[in-house]
């Protein structure tokens, strides 16, 4: 047994790659979780460098950044916090760019539950899951949508609020809420249930910006990751998850 562990350790040590492989710590908005993981793998394959991800609500990550979190890059779910990061002295000026534009979806695990905006109007459900509208841009977009349909006041008593979009998704996925506003990217590989792509005129486009933080300014792995995010490999992955590639617009 001990021998096996030692052997495994030896393998890990040898396979660990070039000695000069660097790493960068990236704070990622929860909606981008799966795409980021895949981009991280492609990034590693191309450069040998590691991207270490921390996932959370954009607001929560930003709070941590203001408190000296060790992040070198922020992949935000909005275009406000990256701007603010630069203005507040945490971000590198000129480094902000849009890496993806997200789509909001009303989703249920059961077929026939979600049938367009009428589903919200008739409100024949008990729990509608969203994420914290102050901390998470997808939550803000959900509230914006309900307000645009003039349904926010009637729907508010039915809202359950996840700390981030992953939790909002999980409330629906576990069956505890009948439906919820989630990110299109979260439904990848999930063809079942019923869904309504919320029309873009009901909410402000979710422009997801990236910003290089000052902690990462001198790290080639960090600047390398920022460049990689603009490249064709990253683009293919971003589009695969249902986002519009940022530089397009």
């Amino acid at each position: 047994m001990i021998f096996r562990i030692l052997a495994a350790l030896a393998v890990v040590t040898f396979v660990a790659g070039p000695v000069d492989a660097a790493e960068t710590k990236v704070a990622v908005a929860a909606n981008f979780t799966e795409a980021a993981k895949e981009i991280g793998v492609a990034f590693k394959r191309k450069t040998g460098d590691d991207a270490l991800f921390s996932f959370g609500a954009t607001g929560q990550l930003y709070t941590q950044i203001t408190q000296d979190a060790p992040f070198e890059i922020l992949l935000s779910a909005d275009d406000e916090r990256p701007k603010k990061a630069v203005a507040d002295g945490f971000g590198v000026p000129g480094s902000v760019f849009t890496y993806a534009i997200g789509k909001l979806v009303l989703w249920s695990k059961s077929p026939d539950v979600v049938k367009g905006e009428d589903t919200l109007k008739t409100a024949g459900f008990t729990k509608l899951s969203i994420c914290n509208p102050v901390a998470a841009p997808y939550g803000a977009a959900a509230v914006e949508t309900m307000k645009a349909l003039k349904l926010y006041d009637t729907l508010q008593p039915k809202l359950v609020v996840g700390a981030n979009i992953t939790q909002a998704f999980q409330f629906v996925d576990s069956g505890n809420a009948e439906l919820g506003f989630v990110a299109l990217s979260q439904l990848k590989g999930n063809a079942g249930g019923s869904r309504w792509m919320v029309p873009q005129d009901l909410y402000k486009p979710i422009r997801q910006d990236a910003v290089l933080l000052k902690k990462g300014a001198g790290n080639t792995a960090a600047t390398g990751f920022m460049d990689f995010l603009k490249g064709p490999e990253a683009r293919a992955i971003i589009e695969k998850y249902g986002y519009v590639f940022g530089s397009e617009t």
Binding site: T126, V160, G175, N176, A177, E178
Partner: peptide
């Protein structure tokens, strides 16, 4: 899908979460 759902079904709800 759990016990709570069955119990809350008695009062016309679908879950005891939230």
């Amino acid at each position: 899908e759990g016990l709570g759902g069955a119990l809350s079904g008695l009062t016309g709800r679908r879950t005891l979460a939230f």
